[in-house]
């Protein structure tokens, strides 16, 4: 077991079940315009249950896990101190729950293509070249107010085999841990103004336009660094906990 995982936080906090997930807000499993979902989507009804302790709890990581360059994709794969090609950007935001409370100690892992739209992966065959100074992964943990920040380059759009000429808008993948395993989430962040957003079969798996817009990060000039980097702000909302003050308990509990 690695040291980081023994550093999980141990102080007691309020526990309780998470608010039921609004499955109409998320993409459904079966979305034929995104072809890979056809054979990978469950087709039977899900078993709906209120959370038990197995879902109310989950792994929480300590800040000691995070290395100095983990949230700096400009430098964490740099060879000989050289920087990657591309538009330097800061991505920052807050992790809140559905009740608007900041969520501290949330581990965020992110991955992305380089400025040419190429991933550093053996199964990736796009013609755009690898950047020797760009790995494409990073991670950080939210502070006590739920804030996080990364530094990276803006990823390029890339074509993918779905329709004949489908392109992914520029995006950054996020893996998000909360406080309970029921909050576990993977999503993607997009960039304000990208004309590929409206054409993306993966974004369009989301039925509600307002939900799609929730994944589009606005340009944030207030946090841009003059003569250095533009900033984009991406807030993330995790399931909130239900209040349990008036919960019925069976006798003996």
């Amino acid at each position: 077991m690695q040291k980081a995982e023994t550093a999980m936080k141990n102080e007691k906090q309020q526990s309780g079940p998470f608010i039921q997930r609004d499955r109409n807000w998320h993409p459904p499993a079966y979305t034929p315009t995104y072809k890979t979902s056809i054979l990978r989507s469950p087709q039977k009804a899900l078993l709906s249950l209120d959370n038990t302790l197995s879902e109310m709890t989950g792994p929480v990581f300590g800040h000691s896990l995070i290395g100095e360059l983990d949230n700096d994709l400009l430098q964490n794969f740099s060879q000989n101190g050289d920087l990657p090609i591309g538009e330097r950007i800061v991505v920052h935001g807050r992790v809140l729950d559905e009740k608007g409370h900041p969520v501290p100690n949330v581990l965020l892992e992110l991955w992305q293509a380089n400025a040419g739209g190429r991933y550093r992966h053996q199964k990736e065959s796009y013609i755009a070249p690898l950047d020797p100074n760009f790995g494409g992964c990073g991670r950080t943990i939210t502070d006590d107010d739920g804030n996080y920040t990364f530094r990276t380059i803006r990823p390029g759009p890339y074509p993918w085999p779905n329709g004949v000429n489908d392109w992914r808008p520029a995006h950054i993948h996020f893996s998000v841990f909360g406080q309970g395993f029921a909050q576990r989430l993977i999503t993607q962040m997009y960039f304000e103004g990208d004309p590929l957003i409206a054409r993306c079969p993966i974004l369009n798996t989301i039925p509600d336009q307002a939900a799609i817009e929730q994944l589009v990060a606005p340009l944030d000039m207030a946090n841009s660094l003059p003569m250095d980097s533009l900033a984009y702000k991406f807030d993330i909302v995790l399931r909130g906990r239900r209040s349990t003050y008036f919960e019925n308990r069976r006798e003996g509990n």
Partner: peptide, 17 residues
């Protein structure tokens, strides 16, 4: 109340992250 951030597929390169 806020809405939970919608999910998106992990995609083919989840292992990078």
């Amino acid at each position: 109340y806020l809405k939970e951030t919608p999910s998106q597929t992990a995609g083919p390169y989840v292992h990078i992250g």
